[in-house]
């Protein structure tokens, strides 16, 4: 998967127009391993209109090996805090991770 690297302070981001830590606008794309850990997660039983067909589904904040964090969908079996996950697929700009 592609992430964004700040040339100003060296932090990595999953998606960002500018660096929220140093304000630099010089962000370059980088390839990331697609591996990370679950920082927090929840299973939704109610959602906004466009996602009602998918209920129930799990989302998680994932901390990638490169340090960037993102909110993504979980595919397959449910995961918990601290579990290792790997990018399974990317669909319409949304990343789906599954248990590693």
């Amino acid at each position: 998967m592609t992430i964004f690297h700040c040339s100003g302070c060296g932090n990595n981001y999953a998606a960002r127009p500018g660096c929220c830590r140093c304000g630099s606008q010089e962000l370059r794309t980088r390839e990331a391993s697609g591996r990370g850990r679950v920082y927090s997660c929840t299973t939704l039983y109610a959602s906004a209109e466009p996602f009602e067909k998918d209920l129930p589904f799990q989302i998680a904040i994932i901390e990638l090996e490169e340090g960037a964090r993102l909110t993504a969908r979980i595919a397959g079996r449910a995961v918990g805090i601290g579990d290792g996950v790997i990018l399974a697929e990317e669909r319409d700009g949304v990343q789906f991770f599954s248990a590693a």
């Binding site: 998606a15 959602s47 998918d54 989302i59 909110t71 969908r73 990343q95």
Partner: peptide
């Protein structure tokens, strides 16, 4: 970002 992945406010506060 988070909203495109399906997050709602209850789900953000659930996390």
């Amino acid at each position: 970002g988070e909203v495109r992945a399906g997050a709602t406010f209850p789900s953000l506060f659930a996390m």
